[in-house]
Nucleic acid binder design. Sequence first.
DNA 1: TATATGTGATACTACTTCGTGTCAAATATG
DNA 2: CATATTTGACACGAAGTAGTATCACATATA
Lengths: 223, 223
Amino acid sequence: METIDKKPATPRQRSGKYAGKAASDRQAERREKLLAAGIKLIGSQGFASTSIDAVCAEAGLTKRYFYESFSNSEDLLVASYRAVTQEYLNSIMLATQPHMGDSRKLVRAGLEQAFGYVAKNPDKARLIMIEAMSVRSQLGRMYGKSYGEFVTLLVTFTKPFLADGGPGDTALEVMAKGAVGAIIHLCQGWIATDFKQPVEELVTGTEHIFGGMGRELGVSGWV
Amino acid sequence: METIDKKPATPRQRSGKYAGKAASDRQAERREKLLAAGIKLIGSQGFASTSIDAVCAEAGLTKRYFYESFSNSEDLLVASYRAVTQEYLNSIMLATQPHMGDSRKLVRAGLEQAFGYVAKNPDKARLIMIEAMSVRSQLGRMYGKSYGEFVTLLVTFTKPFLADGGPGDTALEVMAKGAVGAIIHLCQGWIATDFKQPVEELVTGTEHIFGGMGRELGVSGWV
DNA sequence: TATATGTGATACTACTTCGTGTCAAATATG
DNA sequence: CATATTTGACACGAAGTAGTATCACATATA
């Protein structure tokens, strides 16, 4: 019983194709479906009451494929968070692109998109602004990465308009973080009260916050 | 079998006292213990991973007494949130009391306490600034009540220093909400990164935000 | 056609937690 | 002492979920 004297017929070679698609494509497709389902469910029902089973049902897949792409539900939340944050930031960058020369127009366009996106995508907004907080273990990383990108975006936008003699870089960074916090907090309250307040009021109010910061920093056009 | 002919001996009268204390006192005492246990556990481990059993164990009581004071764990979270928020706001009011006449000193004292409290009470800060978000059903109410009090506090502080010709009341309110959001967001990031950044940097940076708002509003001493 | 692999439905185990119930010991009062 | 209430420890059922395993069927290749 020490040797195998008969090979199991023929060890067939397979390309990995199925339903006309390559294995990696099918896998990526499944991951996308799960991500979309996760965003929808977490954003609408909350992370705590979204089970893996429910996500799979929404995606039209089974648990096996969930664990193929994610190791647990927190993993899905983090992935969803990063995907939506990216989309959010991109949409803001796109909206501000035409106004890079005029700081006032830049701010207004940016804020209109920052609040407008939330109104148009309440589930996604809930996900990135509220539910993301649920993950203690990943919270630090999240702040470091995605919110950090938002802050970097703001600092990048500001620098070209900056005069000398304002606060140092450290203070500038804190101010940018604070500005991001102001927007997020206003959105959270807005979401929590079912978007009752007109978007225009939020934009205008936030514009004043940015205006004040512009004055404080000596930005041309605001002083 | 229609009449009861024999009274069950003597229907004793009891005052309700036990261990030398009145019933309502004992009950309030138990509630306090549970609240303290809840604040400690939710603040340190997070709401999601804090079970009612654990809270009872921490409080040295049993589940029966939990349900005597709270109807479920969310109820405890809401109560904890309100208690800590109250304490937080009171501590800020106390710290600013001596500087009501000088807007610059007022802002600095307020900010030092706003951030100082967080550093001194990380668990409580985590509770009110991070974990409180976990309760979808109560979120609206929270925003309406306790954060609203913070905003009101800010508007109240600002009004006496206000000149004419600034933005309207609606914008002022949005600005105040934004300012609260800036502080909260900075605290969240600070907590998430284990208080690495020096508190002085946060205070100074936030001071600039308030300074800018002061300029924008035409507050005397800031323009 | 025969075989290997991908797929989907579902079963299953292990675990946790909630909310309630039971029971004996401790304390107060007639 | 006898009785009623309060307390604490623990038991219990119901429900939900995570993660794994099983099995029949579909699809590709020699």
